[in-house]
Simulated scan of single mutants.
Amino acid sequence: MEHRNPARNDLATPEEFAAWLRQQLERRGYDLRPRGGGQSKFAADSGIGAGTVSRMLRGQGATETRVLQTLAEALDLPLAEVLVAAGVLSSAELHNVRNPAPRTDPITPEEAADELGITDPHSRALFISMTNTLREQRAANGEGRHIAEN
């Protein structure tokens, strides 16, 4: 479910999350009418505290991400969908995470090592040396450069 709320930068409100959660639970057969027992049954089935389920359904705000992860698992939904529904992420932010803008400028071997998390000095030196050697081989073969000069 996509939420649009320009006043809050496309983030879902707690009330929208409550409506979304109610719809998800009812779709799965939980009776959420007073005395229907659905809230308690879902709390037991999911492992989420009954008070937390009640607060979420009353629109008193989404809860911590650990609980949202448990909620996603209980509903068999991707965590990202639950985070958007709960207003933790906007749909635009999720889109940007899933579809990062491509780099237009080449990176140096040092930047590549940083992005790959290569911190050991020996491994780092080996990676940079190998990258430079490959870059030189490509240049010699006329294949162009894909990694910037140091």
Rank of each mutant, 00 (worst) to 15 (best):
G144S: 10
E26G: 13
M1I: 09
A72D: 01
D45T: 09
V82I: 07
Q137M: 15
I48S: 03
F127A: 15
E136F: 05
P6V: 09
N9D: 07
G142S: 13
D31H: 06
S129M: 07
A74F: 08
L11Y: 02
A125K: 13
A50K: 14
D10F: 03
D31Y: 02
D76R: 15
G117N: 03
L89R: 10
V67E: 01
R103Q: 12
T104R: 14
F127H: 10
E2P: 01
V67G: 00
T119G: 12
A125T: 14
G37M: 08
N9P: 00
L11R: 10
E143H: 03
P14E: 04
Q23N: 14
G36A: 04
D10N: 12
I128W: 00
A125C: 03
D45L: 06
G51H: 06
A80F: 03
T133Y: 04
G61P: 08
A18E: 05
N132P: 05
P78R: 14
D10I: 05
P78Q: 11
I147V: 15
G59D: 08
D76L: 12
P14I: 10
P102K: 14
A44S: 10
V67S: 07
K41S: 09
L25D: 05
T131M: 13
P34C: 08
I48P: 02
S40C: 00
E81P: 00
V84W: 00
T131H: 04
H95W: 09
R8E: 07
I107K: 15
R28G: 01
R124C: 09
L68M: 10
G38P: 02
I107T: 15
K41T: 12
L116V: 02
R135E: 03
M1N: 09
L134P: 00
S40Q: 12
P100Q: 08
T108V: 06
N141V: 11
E16I: 05
A50Y: 05
S123T: 12
P100E: 02
R135H: 05
A125E: 13
E93K: 10
R58A: 13
A92R: 14
L79F: 04
Q39S: 05
E136N: 14
S91P: 03
Y30R: 11
T119L: 11
D10A: 08
L77C: 11
I128S: 01
S46M: 05
V97L: 12
A92H: 10
A43I: 06
E110T: 13
R27A: 15
S90E: 07
A44H: 07
D31R: 11
D31P: 07
E2A: 09
I128K: 11
E81N: 10
L71I: 06
Y30C: 10
P14C: 08
W20K: 07
M56Q: 03
R27T: 14
P6E: 08
E110M: 04
